[in-house]
Amino acid sequence: MSKLMIFYINYESSGARGKKVAFCLPGSLGSAKTDFSPQLASLGSKNLEVISWDPPGYGESRPPSRDFSGNFFVRDSQVAANFMKVVLNYNTYSLLGWSDGGITALQMALSYPERVEKLVVWGANAFIDEKDVKLYNNIRDINKWSERMRKPMENLYGMKYFKSKWEEWIDAMTLLSFRDGGYVLKGDLSTISCPTLIIHGKKDPMVGEYHAQYLHENIKGSQLYVMEDGKHNLHLKYVDEFNKLVSDFLHK
């Protein structure tokens, strides 16, 4: 017997509905507001609708609580594709994926190539290795985070839910690192055919540059843009540069 999964999905949008739409996918425990407010505020236009969601179990897309069992990236990609087609009635769109959202975006490009017009990912990886797991465990204790990094998540979730789900995420990522050689995608990156832009922050403490290089080398015809001063949240810190880069890519 198949299991029917029903989710309440919260989303935000800006710009005019028309020929072009960009669907923004947040990072781990992220939401439309926490992860894409600057893009929702200034990237949308009369020629581009910008949409972002709170993935199942994140932000205001609760209940149910977040489920990190199995390969949740594949599951998120399925829910996201159905959301865009069934709820918002979009057959084609571009994807902007950050961090975990970048992995989901890559999976959507693999699973639904006919729907993805263009792909932009940053702070994303296709595999999880020992260095990644070590890094995740180094930031397991949220009490050691700076207040600036911790406060938005505490405000969104409350300390108990945030702490619990953050630790569950680290445990889930560790488990994924032992499966299929740590490769978290279902499909071969070389089959991605849509125009792809990979952005990497040179000073990203969460995702090494070798991940961006791997994506660039394995996605045919992809472009790689490195922000010399960029960190993991480069789209939030360098809003104007990021938005122009993405806008130019989506409109050309």
Rank of each mutant, 00 (worst) to 15 (best):
G15S: 12
N218Q: 06
K231M: 09
N47W: 01
L234F: 10
M149P: 00
V239F: 04
L88Q: 04
K160F: 12
G201R: 00
V246K: 03
S190T: 07
S177G: 03
G181V: 12
L40P: 04
N233V: 12
D54W: 00
L95K: 02
N155D: 15
G18H: 13
L40Y: 06
L185Y: 01
Q213F: 09
P26S: 14
P113L: 11
T191N: 14
C194L: 08
L25R: 00
F127C: 12
K237Y: 05
T104Y: 04
L25I: 15
A124F: 01
L88A: 08
R17K: 13
P113F: 11
S247Y: 12
L119W: 06
E60P: 00
Q78R: 15
R62E: 03
V184E: 01
T104H: 05
R17G: 12
N155F: 09
P152Q: 07
A212Y: 02
S65C: 09
G15F: 08
L135P: 00
V74H: 05
K160Y: 13
D248W: 04
K202I: 01
E117I: 11
K237V: 13
Y58K: 01
Y214N: 04
Y183W: 10
V87K: 12
L4A: 12
W169N: 14
S177A: 13
K220L: 08
A126F: 11
Y183L: 06
K134M: 11
L119V: 09
V120T: 04
L245T: 13
A124Y: 04
R148C: 04
A212N: 01
E217L: 12
K134L: 11
V239E: 10
D54P: 08
E168N: 14
A109R: 01
F23C: 06
D171M: 10
T196F: 05
D240L: 10
N243R: 06
I198D: 04
G221N: 14
I142V: 15
D248Q: 13
S37Y: 07
K186A: 14
L250T: 07
N138E: 13
D248I: 03
L29I: 09
D204T: 02
